[in-house]
């Protein structure tokens, strides 16, 4: 089973990296970009019988830092 975990910064957490990329986009002449937030995608290939609970635990314990990040689990195939 292919899983994609999308990790993103929580709303309200300053993203200096996103801000720098935002400036760079503006520098390239792109207009109308209101905000840029940078996250991370983790692709997992797991046994088909892996439970949702186990996947959530992987996110909570390691893949995301829930102090600053949200995560979303997507089952790809």
């Amino acid at each position: 089973m292919k899983i994609r975990v999308h990790v993103s910064l929580k709303p309200g957490v300053l993203d200096p990296q996103g801000r720098a990329v935002h400036h760079a986009l503006e520098g390239l002449g792109f207009e109308g970009v209101d905000d840029v937030r940078i996250g991370r995608t983790v692709e997992l290939d797991v046994a088909d019988d892996t439970s949702d609970k186990a996947l959530a635990e992987m996110c909570e314990k390691l893949l995301a830092n829930t102090v600053i990040e949200n995560y979303r689990i997507e089952k790809v195939a």
Binding site: V13, L14, P16, Q17, A20, N65, V67, I68
Partner: peptide, 17 residues
């Protein structure tokens, strides 16, 4: 220590990059 949850909060990239 923060990642191990022995201390609260998190340390992020410096604001000035």
């Amino acid at each position: 220590l923060t990642e191990a949850r022995l201390l609260p909060g998190a340390l992020m990239r410096n604001a000035g990059q």
